[in-house]
């Protein structure tokens, strides 16, 4: 192994790669804009994925993304239909948008290099 490989590994380790679900959550946040809180996020994910999504797992993903500083959140006002509890609104940060773009470029490159799949074109 060469020194350049070592530094490449360190650089890769420092990069905040997005998991599949995390990427989906970030894309939904970008799609929803200012109205992105737990309920619409999970409904949009359910609609797009075609099966149910637990709100707890959405919050867990949002927590990870917030720790990576890819997502930021703020509290809304308490509402009576929620038992007096406030909504927590989430938005994608600038770092988050850069990460989405980088992931899209990477995935696009990978798809382009893929040989034709059985039954469909690559």
């Amino acid at each position: 192994m060469q020194w350049s490989d070592f530094f490449a590994i360190i650089e890769e380790m420092q990069r905040a790669y997005l998991g599949e679900f995390e990427l989906m959550v970030m894309l939904v946040l970008a799609r929803l804009g200012d109205d992105a809180y737990g309920v619409p996020i999970s409904r949009e994910l359910e609609q797009q994925r075609g099966h149910s999504v637990s709100i707890g797992s959405v919050y867990a993903a949002l927590e990870r993304l917030e720790n990576k500083r890819l997502v930021a959140s703020s509290l809304g006002d308490p509402t009576p239909e929620r038992g007096g509890r406030a909504k927590r609104y989430f938005r994608v940060t600038r770092e988050g948008l850069e990460q989405i773009r980088a992931t899209r470029q990477l995935l696009t490159r990978l798809w382009r290099g893929l040989p034709e799949l059985k039954g469909e074109s690559a």
Binding site: G38, Y59, R82, G83
Partner: peptide, 14 residues
């Protein structure tokens, strides 16, 4: 307790 999560669950339930 996560009040926002509890509120989301209540909103969906209602």
């Amino acid at each position: 307790p996560n009040e926002a999560l509890a509120g989301d669950l209540l909103e969906e339930f209602r």
